[in-house]
Write a protein that binds this DNA or RNA. Structure first.
Lengths: 115, 115
DNA sequence: TTGCGTTATGTAATATTCACATAACGGGGA
DNA sequence: TCCCCGTTATGTGAATATTACATAACGCAA
């Protein structure tokens, strides 16, 4: 029987989620590929879902995160705006280590007295 | 525009959630009232949902958490088993302070550079 | 002009969650 | 004895959320 602690962190604006590990991965993948479509494949979600993520993030933040181009060379593409890069960097900083803190606390409390 | 960090912690057994703040509140309320029905009202969920929570927890842990009695004086009732009290105590210990750690880290990173 | 790989979006299908109705229980009081 | 009451217990339909699928539009290049 495997017993594990799980944790999730996300940022809300006016009570609505705008950033979490899933969206962080998506932005990183867009940065990598220059394409929402390719990025969606990378993080194993549908293009539809990725598109919805990006739209809601932009709407809720009131900030343009992605420069999109439809048609043209290679069919178009998408790149992160400067704002998006800044937020992404801050969020990664926030996220890193947090999981480690949680895990350690869990181990300290549950290790000796087995469930 | 309010910007907040949110976090959730829960425990999984074989990949399935068995304990989190919602279930913690439910167990505490059962301890307080001696009744699943009253406890559900306290934590603002339906009796149906509370009952499902308890069943899945017991099934996934393989431990009896609640002694139930239907009918009789006051219509019956429910009390925590000794195992349930132990787990509850450990979980509360785990949970306490964790939110504080997350909040502080968030403030340190996002405070100065506004979104 | 056609083909290609994008972005963009509506809608149907599916899954999940929630709400409601109802049964069974058993002590206590009339 | 026979209801009454407030529980626990559980099935089922409704509502909601998520996911999958289909299709249009775009603009460069061959």
């Amino acid at each position: 029987m495997s017993v594990k602690i799980k944790s999730k962190f996300w940022i809300e604006v006016d009570g609505k989620p705008v950033f979490g590990s899933g969206k962080r991965c998506l932005l990183e993948a867009i940065e990598k590929y220059g394409s929402i479509n390719q990025a969606a494949k990378e993080v194993r979600i549908s293009y539809r879902k990725a598109w919805s993520y990006l739209n809601s993030m932009e709407e809720r933040l009131g900030i343009k995160l992605i420069d999109r181009q439809t048609g043209g060379k290679n069919g178009g593409g998408a790149v992160l705006t400067e704002n998006a890069r800044t937020i992404l960097k801050q969020y990664k900083h926030l996220e890193s280590g947090l999981q480690k803190i949680v895990d350690e606390r869990f181990r300290r409390i549950f290790q000796k007295n087995r469930l």
